[in-house]
């Protein structure tokens, strides 16, 4: 079974719930467990929130979400045309955030990595960011290690 959808929405925080719900409905065809569904919803939510807060910041732009499935594999892309990320490696470090003023925990990428099998980030400053994530449904996964000890990070 192969299937593909593409949706586009404005970078408004109210659309975070919309995006993860669409992804969940798309994936539900594969009969995922509740945990698998929750994992994918969380990863989508993190990626879309990043585009809204960091990609577009104070302005509104369009975010594109592409969901693909091939057999039991789900691939999700979140694309924005915002400010881009100068240092992707740094941005992906757990607890690193450029917006502590907004109480961002700096765990967005770490959550995407924990809840998906694979994630790739492509970004060009001034052009935008694409996050590509993959997750195999119906595969036993080992329990993730805690990302960091929240205590003492500030």
């Amino acid at each position: 079974m192969t299937n593909e959808i593409k949706v586009e929405f404005e970078s408004l925080s109210v659309n975070e719930g919309l995006a993860r719900s669409i992804a969940a409905v798309f994936v539900s065809y594969l009969n995922p467990t509740l945990e698998e569904l929750a994992d994918i919803k969380t990863a989508v939510s993190e990626a879309v929130t990043n585009s809204i807060i960091h990609g577009y910041g104070n302005r509104t732009g369009m975010i594109q979400m592409k969901c693909k499935m091939h057999n039991k594999t789900v691939m999700i892309e979140i694309i924005d045309y915002g400010c881009g990320i100068k240092d992707v490696k740094k941005a992906m470090e757990p607890l690193y955030t450029t917006r502590p003023d907004l109480e961002r925990s700096g765990m967005g990428f770490a959550f995407m990595e924990a809840f998906m099998d694979e994630i790739q980030v492509q970004s060009k400053p001034g052009k935008g960011t694409t996050i590509w994530m993959k997750r195999e449904i119906g595969v036993e996964r080992k329990e993730e290690e805690p990302i960091a000890f929240a205590k003492g990070n500030k």
């Binding site: 929750a38 939510s45 993190e46 929130t49 109480e103 961002r104 925990s105 959550f111 929240a150 500030k154």
Partner: peptide
């Protein structure tokens, strides 16, 4: 039923 890393920010902020 759902919480992502934004929820952690809320709790951490209030904790501090």
């Amino acid at each position: 039923e759902f919480m992502d890393s934004s929820g952690i920010g809320v709790i951490m902020g209030r904790y501090q």
